[in-house]
Measured scan of single mutants.
Amino acid sequence: EVHFESHGEEQAMRVVKMLKKRNLTVEVKVENNKWIITAK
């Protein structure tokens, strides 16, 4: 499981795309203006 924190939507979306290319399940949450990305 991979956790990634991002402060910007643009950066977060880039990471999500990259993770999805690896056929991982990606969950995105926004907490306290931080984008929290979890990949399994």
Rank of each mutant, 00 (worst) to 15 (best):
E1L: 13
E1V: 13
E1G: 10
E1C: 15
E1M: 13
V2P: 02
V2S: 06
V2H: 14
V2Q: 07
V2E: 07
V2C: 15
V2A: 06
H3F: 12
H3Q: 10
H3P: 03
H3T: 12
F4E: 03
F4C: 15
F4L: 06
F4G: 03
E5Q: 06
E5H: 09
S6Y: 15
S6A: 15
S6D: 02
S6T: 14
H7Q: 10
H7A: 12
H7T: 12
H7S: 11
H7R: 09
H7C: 15
E9G: 07
E9W: 15
Q11W: 13
Q11E: 14
A12R: 03
A12G: 03
M13W: 08
M13L: 08
M13D: 03
M13I: 07
M13Q: 06
M13V: 04
M13F: 05
R14C: 15
R14M: 09
V15H: 03
V15P: 00
V15Y: 08
V15N: 02
V15L: 14
V15E: 01
V16M: 06
V16T: 03
V16R: 03
K17R: 13
L19S: 01
L19F: 05
L19E: 00
L19N: 01
K20T: 08
K20H: 04
K21S: 12
K21H: 07
K21L: 11
K21P: 01
R22Y: 14
R22C: 15
N23I: 05
N23G: 15
N23P: 01
N23V: 05
L24P: 02
L24K: 03
T25L: 12
T25S: 10
T25N: 09
T25A: 09
V26K: 00
V26H: 01
V26N: 00
V26I: 08
E27D: 08
V28I: 11
V28C: 09
V28S: 01
K29Y: 10
K29N: 05
K29V: 08
V30Y: 14
E31A: 08
E31K: 07
N32P: 03
N32F: 06
N32G: 13
N33C: 14
K34M: 11
K34R: 11
K34H: 07
K34T: 09
K34N: 05
W35N: 00
W35M: 02
W35F: 06
W35S: 00
W35E: 00
I36M: 05
I36G: 01
I36N: 02
I36F: 08
I37T: 01
I37M: 02
I37W: 01
T38R: 06
T38P: 00
T38L: 06
A39W: 14
A39K: 01
A39L: 11
K40F: 13
K40P: 03
K40H: 11
K40I: 12
